[in-house]
Design a protein around this nucleic acid. Structure first.
Lengths: 236, 236
DNA sequence: ACAACGATACGATGACGACCGAACCATTGC
DNA sequence: GCAATGGTTCGGTCGTCATCGTATCGTTGT
């Protein structure tokens, strides 16, 4: 009689520390192999295999085989959005406890990738600056391209994402898990990060979502966005 | 070293059928007592008590005591939104299996409350109609009040929600769990449902999120919104 | 004050699942 | 074909947790 959504199915898929770590590693949008993910979670490959099977059955991940490797990734951006939302709901006590970000803490607080867009302190600072510059503007709690949008993006040589169908906005807001403020996601944010990596402002790392800000990156973010090193590393 | 979000904490809170049922019961926005929720989930009160303790510790629910009763509810609209998003991610195979909606199935498919706004077939039909009538309009994948908005709402005697601060839009889109199409949420949608109940178009039930559509309701939805009984009950 | 009722703490039980060792399957490269 | 490597299956062990019976605590109403 009662025909209710089965929150427990998705819940069970998340209800394990190892699976949580695996999903977090996948949250930067890249695909990883079973062995890499086992290493990230600190478990044996057989166990990771079982976990990935579980995640895939729940529809959270998808796999893609290439030779003798099988790459796993987040199933789609829909799933990524929900996971990010759940992360925003998680208790944060364990964050500031060790490795406080205020004293130049772990790099993952400064800048990290979040399903192909920039998150962390750098992510929210850039977002707020883009709104100040009227490149983006707030509208009814959502964010839309602003008056100076096209001008700005063509100035820095960024291809402007084509207007998408109404159900898939070109830019969205996403609650930053560590900063508790919004950063941008969506196609525009994806292109921005890819451009930042291509241009050598940021560098990905091997087994971490953390992004390294290069010297050129610090210089560029300061000059173009007005976001300087002190703002990124410092307190406020 | 690794400082990642603990998806498993929220996941563990959801990873039980009884807790899932409890949360679903709470998803209509009303508060229930321990005993009522135990009844919904089909478990003993002691077990429900442990579950509610778990949910509260995870920050998903909050309790409020009134006399010898303790009322439990979803912690905030933030949590409600995430839960609805997770429900939209859940597998749907078990839905059409029993009680198909096409053959005039369970009422919960026709109309139900979802954290104080209307969901189910009626919810998505009203939403689409409001967009057609230009009472609401799509903008960059979000939804905002349209040109005929104020006129329409004052016509039916609905107080127009005041424009909220930018971070809390007056109306939002929410993926309907059964219909897989969008319905509206947010303050405007809340007021719409409350008005519909006050005006006798809909009636709440005791222990279910399902809403009963009254005869006056059918007549009104047809006349004002152009949503007739056949559309609500039928296939399409 | 006492009976009734709702909620909770404790203990025991039973089931599910995370984990890894060992063996097996599949693909690559020589 | 054969060794090497990545991935998976199987079986067994251990820990965790959902469940309920019993008992306790708090509030209400008579």
């Amino acid at each position: 009689m009662a025909m209710e959504p089965r929150l427990d199915i998705i819940g069970a898929a998340l209800a394990d520390v190892s699976r949580s770590q695996i999903l977090c590693a996948l949250m930067d949008g890249r695909a990883f192999t079973n062995k890499e993910l086992a290493c990230v979670a600190g478990i044996a490959p057989q166990t990771a295999s079982a976990h990935l099977k579980h995640l895939q059955l729940a529809g959270l991940t998808s796999s893609l085989r290439s030779g003798r490797h099988i790459y796993h990734r987040i199933a789609d951006k829909n799933v990524a959005g929900v996971l990010e939302a759940i992360a925003g709901l998680s208790p944060t006590d364990h964050l500031r406890r060790n490795g406080s970000s205020r004293h130049g803490g772990a790099d993952i607080f400064r800048a990290r990738s979040c399903y192909n867009h920039i998150a962390g302190r750098l992510g929210v600072l850039l977002t707020e600056r883009l709104i100040d510059l009227n490149v983006l503007q707030l509208s009814e709690g959502a964010v839309v391209p602003g008056d100076h949008g096209n001008r700005f993006f063509s100035d820095i040589g960024l291809p402007i994402p084509s207007a998408s169908p109404a159900h898939d906005p070109v830019v969205k807001l996403c609650l930053d898990w560590t900063e508790r403020r919004h950063h941008i996601s969506g196609p525009l944010a994806t292109q921005l990060m890819q451009h930042a990596i291509r241009a050598g402002w940021l560098e990905r790392r091997r087994n971490s979502r953390a992004l390294t800000i290069t010297e050129r990156g610090y210089e560029t973010f300061d000059r173009i966005f007005g976001v300087n090193r002190e703002m990124i590393e410092g307190g406020s």
